[in-house]
């Protein structure tokens, strides 16, 4: 056990951060919806994220979970996942929004204090996934909630997720 701890300390696996997605940052800035001085003061350089699976296949969740591993170490950027929507600044949604999950998603969003962002992660959440045309899915997050940032991929890999989330912080500064 102590050997394990030493091993971890001597050879850290954490990799340098990828650059923020500049295009996304610019879009977010241009959007400017909730990025006033007050927002900046309140959120600072740290964002609390509530992840929400709105009917994903779970592939997106696997990669979002990977953000916490030693290679990506999400928390060093001031980004952390929280359990309660009441503590969250960001709603990170995956999946094509099944009709069976729509209300739970809306209620989660309503439970979050403003200012708040919505990030649609993965092709399903964006509306270009394989389930977009399903009669039992809404088909995209932005048909229900105001989406600030879209991260493409099926699933988006951790680097793509990180670039997107870092652009949120960059736009906030």
């Amino acid at each position: 056990m102590s050997k394990l701890l030493w091993h971890g300390l001597l050879a850290p696996l954490t990799e340098p951060a990828p650059a923020a997605d500049e295009e996304a940052t610019a879009t977010l800035r241009a959007l400017g919806r909730e990025l006033g001085t007050a927002t900046r003061r309140r959120l600072g350089r740290s964002l609390a994220i509530r992840e929400l699976d709105a009917g994903s296949c779970n592939g997106c969740e696997l990669e979002i979970n990977a953000l916490g591993n030693a290679f990506y170490d999400l928390e060093r950027f001031g980004l952390r996942f929280v359990a309660s929507p009441r503590h969250a600044d960001v709603l990170l949604v995956t999946g094509p929004v099944t009709l069976n999950m729509r209300e739970a998603m809306e209620r989660t969003w309503l439970a979050m204090p403003a200012p708040k962002f919505v990030v649609a992660a993965g092709d399903c959440a964006i509306g270009c996934g394989l389930f977009a045309a399903s009669p039992v899915c809404v088909g995209a997050v932005d048909k229900v909630l105001p989406v600030d940032l879209r991260i493409a991929g099926c699933p988006p890999d951790p680097t793509a997720l990180l670039r997107g989330l870092l652009s949120l912080i960059a736009a906030n500064q």
């Binding site: 009917g55 592939g59 969740e61 696997l62 099944t98 394989l130 389930f131 399903s134 039992v136 099926c154």
Partner: peptide, 30 residues
Amino acid sequence: YTHKGTAGLMRGAAPLHAARLAGRVSGDAT
């Protein structure tokens, strides 16, 4: 809660497309 009507979307699809849907029934077991 996550019912997406996947089997329904496969009906009438070309096998290659249906295979992609099958690969998204459960992402961890794609």
